[in-house]
Amino acid sequence: MFYYAHPQNRFWRILPRIYNNHQTLETNEEKSQFLLEHRIALWDVLHSCTIEGSSDSSIKDAVPNDLTFLLENSDIRRILCNGTTAYKLFQKFQKFDLEKSVEVLQLPSTSPANARFSEETLEKIWKEALLHHK
């Protein structure tokens, strides 16, 4: 169990290319190390929910993660939501008052269900969000 574990999810294929790294990220250890090296944190908007398969539209009984402590005690300046559902759930549940500004962006999902975006287009959009800060 690790983030974006579905073999067809494009997240772990585009991420190394964004950083001009030709490494294939296969194991959880390789993925974790890559994230640490590039100062990327991954966290779920939801702590738990009831869901049928991987269908976001079936989410019920959502219990949000409390991100307040994490955001108040780290140098996170930008939050990238992987898809519309993650963004909407973040907006619905994450009510916190921070002294520092945290930019929240909705990006197209890297899920294989999001056939509207090619892998190349996802890479371009995610690269812009990850590397070009305000």
Rank of each mutant, 00 (worst) to 15 (best):
S118P: 01
D75H: 09
N73P: 05
E103V: 13
D97P: 00
Y3N: 05
T27R: 02
V104H: 07
K95A: 14
D56F: 12
Q8P: 01
V45I: 15
F90Y: 15
F2M: 05
A62Y: 07
C81K: 06
Y87M: 08
I40K: 04
A86T: 14
A129S: 13
V104N: 10
H133I: 13
I76S: 09
R13N: 12
E120V: 02
A115P: 00
T84P: 00
Q94P: 02
P16G: 04
F93G: 02
F93T: 01
T84V: 08
S58Y: 06
E123M: 09
A41G: 04
H6T: 00
K100F: 08
R13W: 08
K60Y: 09
E103F: 05
G83Y: 05
H47D: 10
T121H: 06
H133E: 08
E26C: 03
R10Q: 08
L131Q: 14
K95I: 14
E72H: 08
A62S: 08
G53L: 07
E120R: 04
G83K: 06
R116C: 09
V104D: 11
L80Y: 03
D66W: 10
R116G: 08
K88C: 06
S54M: 14
R78L: 01
Y87S: 06
Y3I: 02
H133S: 07
Q23H: 12
E99S: 11
Y4Q: 10
S118N: 07
W43L: 13
I51M: 15
T84Y: 15
F11Q: 03
E72Q: 15
V45C: 05
S118K: 08
A41E: 11
C81L: 08
R10A: 05
K134I: 14
E123L: 12
R10E: 02
E72G: 01
R17M: 07
T85D: 11
L131I: 13
E26H: 09
I14H: 00
G53T: 02
A41Q: 10
T85L: 07
F69H: 14
Y19E: 01
N21W: 03
N73C: 03
Y3T: 00
P16I: 06
L130E: 01
T121N: 12
E128K: 15
H133N: 12
E29V: 01
E103Q: 11
Q94L: 10
V102R: 01
L89E: 14
E37T: 09
F69E: 10
S101Y: 11
H133D: 05
Q91C: 11
T68R: 12
V102T: 09
I40T: 10
N73A: 04
Q33E: 14
P16R: 06
S101Q: 15
D44K: 09
L15S: 00
N82A: 04
T85I: 12
Y3K: 06
K88V: 05
F117N: 02
R17H: 14
R10W: 04
N9P: 00
H6Y: 10
K31F: 01
E119V: 12
E72D: 12
N73F: 03
W43K: 12
C49I: 07
F2P: 00
D97T: 11
Q106D: 05
W126E: 00
Y87T: 06
V63F: 08
N9T: 05
Q91N: 11
A62F: 03
F93M: 01
S111A: 12
L107E: 04
Y3C: 07
V63M: 13
T121M: 14
E26I: 13
F69L: 14
F69Q: 12
L130F: 09
N9E: 07
M1E: 10
T68N: 10
Q106Y: 03
N114C: 08
